[in-house]
Design a protein around this nucleic acid. Structure first.
Lengths: 151, 151
DNA sequence: AATGCAAATGCAAGGCAGTTGCAAGTGGCG
DNA sequence: CGCCACTTGCAACTGCCTTGCATTTGCATT
């Protein structure tokens, strides 16, 4: 348990913040997840799995991590809810299933080159970009076909 | 005044909803704007410019329009606030200035072809996509250079 | 033009994601 | 082990948005 708890100690100390049970647990969950999580998802998982935690602690922890650039905060495109993911410094995009809200990662950025080209063409300092692709995943696909009929 | 008020009457009737002062005013504002607006922006403008309107009416009207596909609702990437814009059925992307929140339109979609290619490659029914480019606009550019120093 | 009814609106209360103030608890230093 | 700043839980609060309900309005019909 000690070993487990201090898994991120060094990392956290390096950022000048204390290593605590909650912070370690949150980092661990984010590390395990392939896709961004909401604060609520983290809260519920922690409450069930580990010891009790307050939702405000989840938010505060996430804010702290984000300010240290350990994680990335974004907003889900369809409902605006905040999403958090570990900052692997790797550039990623997702397929968002509008049926079940599932996020599927795309590993390579299909528009990296394009951004480079664009940078030289416009009077705007590009610092980043986000591409989101909507649709229906394998499972929701069939389902959708039986329901939708309008344009 | 009559003429002005009934500018969108036909359009609204076609969708099976009544033409009212508020609905016309909201459509007009959205038509005049080059970029998506928040409900609050609409609310304030209407309150100042036209007659008083309730915020709930703004939201309800926008929801109604969105359900008729007259407008498009989205969520601002950086703070998750809802944005509304007229549905011109034209596909657009934006440059978002993280300095001043300004949105600048890009007229042609740089990744349309790419989506077509992708559609054939993956087990996912693509129905749409959204590309957002972040950075600093002409005005905020200089400002930013004098401030930023960290990685 | 007056009537009637469903749709639209204002108002106030409510809901949900996220934030904040403060007192109590804890990590990690000596 | 004892201290102190940092962290946490708790409860109240904010901001954005939604809903219930009574009133008003568009508009079809007389």
């Amino acid at each position: 348990m000690l070993d487990e708890n201090s898994k991120y100690k060094e990392l956290l100390n390096r950022e000048g913040i204390k290593s605590t049970r909650h912070r370690n647990a949150i980092l661990e969950l984010l590390e395990e997840s392939e896709f961004p999580l909401t604060a609520e998802q983290l809260f519920i998982t922690l409450r069930d799995k580990t010891a009790s935690i307050d939702l405000s602690t989840v938010y505060r922890t996430l804010d702290t991590f984000a300010s240290k650039n350990l994680i990335i905060k974004s907003n889900r495109a369809d409902d605006g809810k905040a999403l958090y993911e570990l900052n692997h410094n790797e550039h990623k995009h997702h397929l968002l299933c509008v049926g079940c809200h599932k996020l599927i990662s795309i590993d390579d950025c299909p528009i990296g080159e394009l951004m480079q080209t664009l940078k030289n063409k416009i009077d705007f300092d590009i610092t980043g970009h986000k591409l989101e692709i909507y649709g229906y995943c394998h499972d929701c696909k069939k389902f959708n076909h039986t329901l939708s009929s309008d344009a």
